[in-house]
Design a protein around this nucleic acid. Structure first.
Lengths: 227, 227
DNA sequence: GGAAAATGGTAGTAATACTACTATTTTTGC
DNA sequence: GCAAAAATAGTAGTATTACTACCATTTTCC
């Protein structure tokens, strides 16, 4: 069986976690623990106990827990990009590709057996709750320089390209894409925790929540693009 | 001269900071220091030194630094709400009110002499950079229960009301409003730090950046509402 | 088979968030 | 006017966190 892996920016880690068993355990348990504890209460000490190792060993893979978060979220964008390619490779029109992109962005995230040691469901919850912590820092500019955001950026660029094809004179394709990617996460969060800020009812079955989310995002994108 | 103040939810503080000189200094210097240091590096110890007091004295006003952040951001939403009322009280049509709301949301935030001990410019930067930290926590549901988000919620509701008037059958007015409020902040941040995610050029003079931001937000809102 | 390199583990440190406790000031009853 | 009670301020801690200097062990490679 072929092992599919993403080649991530090597500035994301000190030692490649995909190269060793300990590294893989760090990633796998890291996802579980950040999901269950929240990023603030997650520490390398607790992670070390979970993977039967020690704090300094983990520090040899990742400079600090922020870098681990960066790594996990970069992986997530690579995964979405890969799913977008799968969803669009049979399509020709930009309009259809754009619809497919919206579907990929808004669909429910489920475990993808292609990547055995990654729990995509938990990872998605991490992206929803912790993404902002990767860029709302004093080091954004350095981190951006180092290429840590290239996953999100290339995904944005790809979808913005579809928008440009559909409506070449629309002046804000990148802004529109980054807005809907973030809004998709925010709205699911609001629907659960701050329902006054959303019209996606918490009580609905999960698949219907995602249908509504998709309808909302499409109302924005195709509203803007309607002539 | 009449002193205008906002009555904020009393769950935001332990002791009303508007009632004492120390309290006012905590708010004023708190804004400056969170703006300059960033929320992570801001501590009550540093603040205590700045206001010539001690750590425990500050803890008597706010349970912890998260609550102080909540307080400042709640103040900001009250202020926006007040500015929205000023901007709309002479208007009658919902369409005009909606345009005014978009202007209030996207306009450059400048010092408002009505509130002497608050630096609104710095406060806006705090909202841009730290807002998410008030709700992306393990305590969202409790905090929401306590009414800590009522400022943002009532602002959202008000603007969503205009949308409903303009287009009664649009199913996502609240989602649309929360999305544009957040997007307005995000896009200004991206324009400065992650330009690939935005089409608002950093090099432009600040007033033109805000004009573009407004054009972007209007393209979304009036795209959706166009029949 | 042994030196060099890579990896792992022990035991710390400085800083942070928060608090128990003591000291001082202010209020209040008479 | 003044002592007792209540309110407020300040001192000196603690537990936890993020991180690291340094020592120990294993692996690599000639």
């Amino acid at each position: 069986m072929s092992q599919l892996t993403f080649k991530l920016n090597d500035r994301l880690y000190l030692r490649d976690p995909q190269a060793t068993i300990l590294g893989q355990k760090i990633v796998q348990k890291g996802i579980e623990m950040i999901d269950s504890l929240g990023f603030e209460h997650f520490t390398f000490k607790k992670l070390a106990a979970e993977v039967s190792s020690t704090e300094p060993s983990i520090y040899r893979y990742f400079e600090n827990k922020h870098r681990l978060l960066h790594y996990l979220i970069a992986w997530y964008w690579s995964w979405l990009d890969y799913r977008l390619d799968l969803a669009t490779n049979s399509l020709v029109s930009a309009d259809e590709k754009l619809r497919a992109a919206i579907r990929v962005i808004t669909e429910e995230k489920k475990y993808d057996p292609t990547f055995q040691h990654v729990n995509e469901e938990a990872l998605h919850r991490i992206v929803v709750g912790e993404l902002e912590k990767t860029y709302l820092t004093k080091w954004v500019d350095d981190d951006n320089q180092a290429g840590l955001f290239s996953g999100l950026k290339s995904l944005t660029k790809k979808i913005a390209g579809y928008i440009h094809e559909v409506m070449p004179d629309y002046p804000f394709p990148n802004s529109l894409v980054s807005t809907i990617i973030l809004a998709a996460n925010e709205q699911m969060f609001f629907s659960q925790h701050l329902p006054a800020l959303s019209n996606i009812e918490k009580q609905l079955p999960v698949p219907e929540q995602h249908m509504k989310l998709r309808a909302f995002v499409e109302s924005i994108v195709f509203g803007v693009l309607r002539k």
